[in-house]
Amino acid sequence: MGPAAGWIQETTGTEVAEAFKRNIKGKTILITGVSPISLGESTALAIARHGPAKLLLVSRTESKLQHVADKIAKINPNVKVDLIVVDLSSQTDIRTAARKVFDLTDRLDVLVNNAAVVTSARGETLEGIELQFGTNHIGHHLLTSLLTPLLIAAATASGERGTTRIVNVSSIGYRLSPIRFHDHNFEGKPIPSEEEPPKGIPAHMKPDVAAGRPYYGFTAYGQSKTANILHAVALKEKFLSKGIQAFAVHPGSIWTDLSRNLSAADRKIIEGTSTFWKNQDQGCATTLAAAFDPDLCDAEGPFLSDCHLHDVAEYAKDQVIAENLWQLSEKLTEGKASL
């Protein structure tokens, strides 16, 4: 029985990284969404203490990346850190960033898809995809597909099944919505009942086309977080035989800079959703467990919370739904995982 057996919601990323420091040492790790006051920052700092070969830090703002890199230099000046600026709402930007990653490394041991956006108002990516779905899932789907050769190279070199990992930072907020295959863009198109928000979601917290409200930010966020889990399901199915393991995680309830685009009313709603709020260090613990816990090498479940495997609703783990989402994602990225 590994150290995770005793971990609870108060467990910190510092503790998890210390427990798995042998699994971190010498690894090449890429983390998206790295900026001050973020889970990306706390994840990077916890890893940096234990001698990774290289950290590739990805975000849309160079100055914010540099701020985190400066902190890493103080913690462990021997860690090689590369900064990659990318806007995950631009597929052109993602392809450019992926080419840079190939220039910087010939292998990738761990990919942490951490970046996200949550917003009250409807927006779109440069390709016209609803912003939260397009950034939180489609952007990471494309980036992961482009970087898969580097992950396969790492898995082949290690020869250890399941130690090469992809970790999608999802949320328990997935419970707000399944994938809306008939209206993923929230354009007011009719959808079947199984794509509606689950029963029990208050009427004021979901779209209402008849009332002239085809979009609701939390429903869109829920769809994107369901997509993060299903992406892990599909990745596990497609690549575990090649030595690559995949998970999605709920980091816990935590205030970060992610909430900056929410309305005052939506921020108030979030304030009432938890009785325990994690700090930054506690918030990255489950991500680190998913990335480095050797007991998870052959785990079948796709989802972790508080460092342990947790079950999810059928619509977030069904293999057929996961494959349907994969096909939609390929269509929305033109099915081209080429640089």
Rank of each mutant, 00 (worst) to 15 (best):
E196V: 15
I229V: 09
G188R: 01
S224M: 03
A211K: 09
A232T: 05
D298P: 09
N279F: 00
Q223A: 06
E300Y: 06
A203W: 14
P202R: 01
I166N: 12
S224H: 01
P302H: 04
F239A: 04
V167S: 04
P192W: 03
H204G: 06
P207L: 09
L235R: 13
W277K: 03
S193V: 14
I191S: 04
T286A: 09
G283H: 08
A246C: 05
F218N: 03
G272F: 04
S170K: 03
A265W: 04
Y216M: 13
L262R: 02
Q280G: 15
W277V: 02
D295W: 14
I244W: 05
Y216D: 07
A290M: 11
V167I: 14
L296E: 00
H231I: 06
R213H: 13
G252R: 05
F186H: 04
A265G: 09
T287W: 14
P178F: 08
P207R: 06
H204N: 11
S274Y: 01
L296P: 13
A227T: 01
V209C: 01
F247R: 07
E196C: 15
P251H: 03
R161T: 14
Y174G: 06
P197N: 05
F239E: 12
V233I: 05
A210N: 02
R213E: 11
E194Y: 15
S263G: 13
A248H: 05
Y215T: 06
R165A: 11
G212Y: 02
F276P: 01
L262N: 05
G243I: 06
G200E: 07
F218V: 09
E187H: 04
E194F: 14
S263W: 00
K278G: 02
I269V: 13
K268F: 15
G252C: 00
L235C: 15
K225Q: 00
S259Q: 14
V249S: 04
P198I: 10
I201K: 01
K242L: 12
H231F: 14
K238L: 14
R260Q: 10
L230Y: 12
N228T: 10
S259K: 10
P251S: 03
Y221D: 03
T286K: 15
N228D: 11
G159S: 06
T275P: 01
T286N: 08
G272M: 10
P294M: 00
D257R: 13
Q282R: 11
A210H: 03
A227G: 03
S158G: 07
N228G: 10
F247K: 09
K242N: 07
F239I: 08
C297P: 11
K225L: 09
N168W: 03
Q280I: 14
